[in-house]
Write a protein that binds this DNA or RNA. Structure first.
Lengths: 166, 166
DNA sequence: GTGCGAATACTCGGATACCGCGTGTCCGAGTAAGTGAGG
DNA sequence: CCTCACTTACTCGGACACGCGGTATCCGAGTATTCGCAC
């Protein structure tokens, strides 16, 4: 089982947006450069976030991406669903009804498959944990452990000039 | 993100073993037929369970597979690890150190990546839930919701003949 | 000086190849059982 | 009748193709800016 790396990329991108803390759009080129990622492919992933109303895109010159909601209103669950899709990792194909089960009355399968239920229970715990954490929490954690990271990223994106020239 | 279907297959197979409740080996052909699964590919999956010491295989005529431990001692986590491997679904590639982070002192990365930590927390909850359920629990759930399933499966595997001929 | 209009350069967006991993299959090594002959 | 060795048939086990989804890339549609010109 493997999660697409788009999740990692977009989470870092959203963390960057949380650090920027303004409404100025950022181009995908800047975002890609700030983490040395393939520009075009990152763009594709960000489109998924736009479709999920996590980011919004501004076309044209001086365009780019910016957050569509506040960081506190974006959960990790939202991001995972936006990138990986809504389907569960474990997919019950109802093999209990095939083979030996084929001879049983249809009413026997009214209750959900026990295997399915157990796996679903585990995934529910996973989802619950993801939904409990927001991008704002992520920023708070990062600031706590590496206070300089936010400033470094702002500098890489050309924000917060080190000195006002006049 | 998608989990290999081998997990579903092997869980149903282990549930079947829990229903049989004896030490007689069962051939992969019988097991595959009992759920209409591809014989050879199921065999491949079962080998993974053997490597994980969940099943044991008996070669030669009248051989087959049987449980290596009691159903209460086999957790869903064991099965998932045996089939899917031990690696986590989310893999941190430390992109925080690339791009903007490259200019930061190495000591900044002593603490784990915040993104990584958050995703790991969620996966831990998932693992914990998987580890809390055993094959025996699975059988208990199945018996509760569909009491006839166990008998049907035993019959399909040629056990518990309906009538003693003499 | 000011308003307007077209050219421009920059942005995102979706359509298009590539590749690795899961899926599926096959045949060979190994072993326990069965069988026949010999004692 | 018992023992033993051989044949046999069956099992698992790993090595070999196939296909799909994620990965990566490119070029086109669209828009805000910008420059030049007319008034």
């Amino acid at each position: 089982m493997r999660m697409g790396q788009g999740v990692e990329w977009t989470l870092h991108v959203l963390l960057a947006f949380a650090w920027l803390d303004d409404d100025e759009p950022v181009t995908v080129q800047q975002l890609a450069a700030s983490h040395e990622l393939p520009v075009a492919y990152l763009n594709k992933q960000l489109q998924a976030l736009v479709r999920a109303s996590i980011l919004e895109s501004l076309p044209g010159a001086r365009g780019g991406f910016r957050l569509a909601r506040r960081p506190e209103a974006i959960t990790l669950m939202d991001v995972v669903v936006a990138i990986e899709g809504t389907q569960a990792a474990f997919r019950c194909t109802e093999i209990r009804q095939r083979g030996a089960g084929a001879a049983m009355p249809a009413a026997s399968f009214a209750e959900p498959c026990a295997v399915h239920a157990s796996m679903q229970r585990a995934e529910l715990a996973w989802r619950r944990e993801l939904a409990a954490q927001t991008i704002a929490d992520l920023r708070a954690d990062a600031d706590r452990h590496a206070p300089a990271a936010g400033a470094a990223l702002r500098r890489a994106l050309g924000r917060t000039p080190q000195r006002t020239t006049t």
